[in-house]
């Protein structure tokens, strides 16, 4: 399954749902991304959810809410959750929010 809508592209490979998030993530864009990911979680019931944030050019605390919200949903459903492609800038925000204590993420720029 491939799905693309503005700031998010979704792919399902085996039991893994990967969401490639790109562009500017603020309160305005987070809503569409959140709805797309949640809809795919319901439709495909994957065993793992990966958020790839390597193509994000801007993120504020709305992006933190987006990540934390998906983490909570995945945890409640018993789905493994990770974030990949975290830039130094995004990592600064994540660390500020204490995400490093609850979410598995790397800060290596991932090449697609």
């Amino acid at each position: 399954m491939d799905f693309e809508n503005g700031n998010v592209k979704l792919t399902v490979t085996g039991d893994t749902l990967c969401a490639y998030i790109s562009g500017e993530i603020d309160h305005h864009s987070a809503k569409t991304i959140r709805e797309a990911i949640d809809s795919a979680l319901t439709s495909y019931s994957p065993d793992a959810l990966i958020l790839d944030v390597s193509e994000i050019s801007f993120m504020d605390s709305s992006g933190l809410g987006l990540v934390l919200g998906r983490y909570t949903k995945a945890s409640e459903a018993g789905i493994s959750f990770s974030v990949t492609g975290v830039s130094e800038r995004t990592k600064r925000l994540f660390d500020m929010a204490g995400l490093d204590r609850i979410i598995d993420y790397d800060n290596k720029e991932k090449k697609r």
């Binding site: 987070a30 959140r34 504020d60 605390s61 709305s62 933190l64 809410g65 987006l66 934390l68 919200g69 925000l93 500020m96 929010a97």
Partner: peptide, 14 residues
Amino acid sequence: QGERSGLGFTVMES
């Protein structure tokens, strides 16, 4: 309900 992180002012201060 809007999944706000509650960190807006923290980000501004930082």
